[in-house]
């Protein structure tokens, strides 16, 4: 009996096809992920409201001013940007001490009674401030909030804020509300 040869598929073009596919997907992949700092604007003020700001005690406000030369004035003292985050953190964490904000003890689910700081960060810039500087300052303030939240999450749940379940995140957010208020800019630096 004659030996039957096993038929083989010609696979010499397999590599070509694989490379074509590879190159096609390499080129057609979009990697354009948009990132940024998310913010909520305050709703427009009703026209009949009187322009008095709600009374907030001075020690409850962390005042950050940026002038038209991009210099920072924090709580009445000029400082460098590098120190802003730590100073803001200190403001958020210390409560009921002289010169630090008051607190209000609230019952929060999953955490229990927690002294919630009444502190508000107030940011005011000039119309001449550059946008890059403004973002740097915003970033430092958000970083301060995130670190304070992370530390509380570690203490209460043993994990970082981003890794928590939605309910725990909500509890942490309630314990440390992000209050950044932006005042209308000044008109010293022109357009």
């Amino acid at each position: 009996m004659a030996k039957r040869e096993v038929p083989e598929i010609n696979s010499s073009s397999m590599a070509d096809i694989a490379f074509m596919l590879l190159i096609f997907f390499l080129v057609a992949t979009t990697m354009d992920i948009d990132t940024g700092l998310a913010r909520m604007l305050p709703p427009p003020a009703p026209p009949d409201i009187d322009n008095k700001a709600p009374l907030v005690q001075e020690k409850n406000i962390f005042v950050v001013l940026i002038n038209k030369n991009d210099q920072l004035l924090v709580e009445g003292r000029p400082i460098e940007l590098d120190f802003l985050k730590d100073q803001c953190k200190e403001f958020l964490q210390k409560t009921d001490q002289p010169n630090f904000p008051d607190s209000e003890t609230k019952e929060i689910s999953l955490i229990g009674r927690f002294p919630v700081s009444k502190g508000v960060v107030s940011l005011q810039n000039d119309r001449g401030t550059t946008y890059g500087r403004y973002i740097e300052v915003q970033n430092a303030l958000v970083a301060a909030y995130n670190e304070v939240r992370d530390e509380l999450s570690m203490e209460k749940f043993g994990r970082k804020f981003d890794e928590l379940s939605e309910e725990s995140q909500k509890a942490i957010k309630e314990a440390i509300p992000q209050r950044i208020s932006e005042a209308e800019p000044k008109r010293i630096g022109g357009k």
Binding site: G36, L37, R39, P43, N125, Y131
Partner: peptide, 24 residues
């Protein structure tokens, strides 16, 4: 300069588009 950005933020407030994102 922030002046033009503030103006945009103000018009977004007036238009009730309150969710914004500073792209970085």
């Amino acid at each position: 300069k922030m002046g033009i950005v503030s103006d945009i933020k103000q018009s977004l407030r007036d238009a009730q588009a309150l969710k914004i994102n500073y792209s970085t």
